[in-house]
Design a protein around this nucleic acid. Structure first.
Length: 262
DNA sequence: ATGGTAGTGAAACTA
């Protein structure tokens, strides 16, 4: 079977229910992973999504902040949910599809403004979160698994509009990129987006604060799709739906897609 | 060096 998966930081699933439905109707991924739902699970507007065929959901939520959800047209059961770094935040949930593929959906802490844990507690929490992710995947090698989400790190030079100017900016600082690579290695994860699109500038996020995000194009690739080696060669068709950043009342993130032929 | 915008929820926090 073949299935298409998308990951999108929606920045409020209730405010942007209409945009989620638009994506479901126009792009129709089999599985849609959302981050920053900013909603308790019981207030997620399920009905409209169900009508479009997304009859399965696993989610974790809280009031006002964070929140992750996976919507699927394919039968899916909850696998697990972890509170890495013990922040008490809804930042991870995992589901297993009926084909045996497990999907981990993450919203990694943004990490505040200063890339130094000595002066910025939030940056320390981000590094600790990544370290615990690493240890979790090192303890038991994930198999037939996909990891997606807003990882809040743009690891490569061509994942940002200016490598040089962002070296001291949280999301592209060397220490956090190192932590992300450690997490990747621990689970033998393959970066599917860059497997499919190995060359060139590629972004999934553009700040709300830019005067003209499209013309300025000062983006970063913060949203990722990874897979374990046993299914990584089944992946193809990766893309970023940049157009969604230009929709009315948009999220500051664009959805990222990949297709798996299994 | 600063401020620019957005969401939640009704001030201050987070991004």
């Amino acid at each position: 079977m073949s299935f298409t998966l998308a990951t999108w930081n929606i920045n409020s699933v209730r405010l942007r229910e209409g945009l989620v439905r638009k994506l479901m109707e126009e792009e129709a991924p089999d599985v849609l992973c959302l981050q920053e739902c900013k909603s308790p699970v019981e207030k997620i507007p399920l009905e409209g999504f169900k009508e479009l065929g997304y009859t399965h959901m696993v989610a974790r939520g809280q009031k006002g902040y964070n929140g992750v959800a996976i919507f699927s047209k394919i039968p899916m059961e909850e696998n697990c949910a972890h509170d890495f770094a013990d922040l008490g935040h809804a930042r991870h949930v995992a589901g297993t599809l009926e084909n045996g593929v497990t999907i981990h959906n993450f919203y990694v802490p943004a990490g505040g403004d200063v890339p130094d844990r000595e002066v910025n507690e939030k940056f320390g929490q981000k590094l600790d979160y990544l370290t615990q992710m690493r240890d979790y995947f090192k303890a038991e090698a994930p198999q037939k698994s996909i990891l997606v989400g807003d990882l809040n790190i743009a690891p490569r030079e061509d994942d940002v509009w200016s490598h040089k100017q962002l070296l001291k900016i949280v999301s592209h600082a060397p220490i956090e990129v190192e932590h992300l690579h450690d997490t990747m290695e621990a689970g033998k994860w393959v970066d599917i987006t860059r497997q499919d699109i190995p060359e060139g500038l590629l972004y999934s996020w553009w700040s709300y604060r830019a005067r003209d995000w499209d013309a300025a194009d000062k983006g970063r690739r913060l949203d990722h799709i990874w897979a374990t080696p046993d299914i990584s060669n089944a992946a193809h068709g990766s893309r970023v739906l940049r157009a969604a950043r230009g929709w009315e009342k948009p999220s500051d993130h664009a959805p990222v897609f990949a297709t798996f032929d299994l």
